[in-house]
Amino acid sequence: MAELSFLTFRGNIIVALHGEMTDSSVRNFQSHLLEEIERIHARGLIIDISALEFVDSYMARVFVETAKMAQLMDTRTVLVGMKPEIAITLIQMGLSFEGVFSAVNLDRGLEILEKERARKRGRR
């Protein structure tokens, strides 16, 4: 698998996944991502999966888990660019994505993070 590169944009981490991932590279991705969140105190996290050819239950579970872990560190996660066919497949397999935000593209993903931040500020 290609090296992961994390972009930082207005306090958010943006990471794009490409091609195929073995289970161990998916696990590596998770731990590196969480370390990066801790390091820069990220406010939001965007995982762009538009270039992934498929997402199986293992990957899906890691995404949901990562979102939950990030949430514990006060970071919201948005999954961006899931292909329609992948969405259908995951739903038909019976997977649940509760607690994870989704967006059609990067712009919308950032928009969701902004909104969530505003909502949090409003609560204070």
Binding site: D23, F54, V55, D56, T89, M93
Partner: peptide, 30 residues
């Protein structure tokens, strides 16, 4: 899995068919 994807693409399976076959392959092979 990549080989299976290539074969199903060549045989003219739809994108949804291909992705679902690839996903099931990944699950069962894992």
């Amino acid at each position: 899995g990549n080989e299976i994807s290539r074969l199903t693409r060549e045989k003219g399976f739809s994108i949804l068919d291909r992705i679902q076959i690839r996903t099931a392959f990944s699950e069962l092979a894992r």
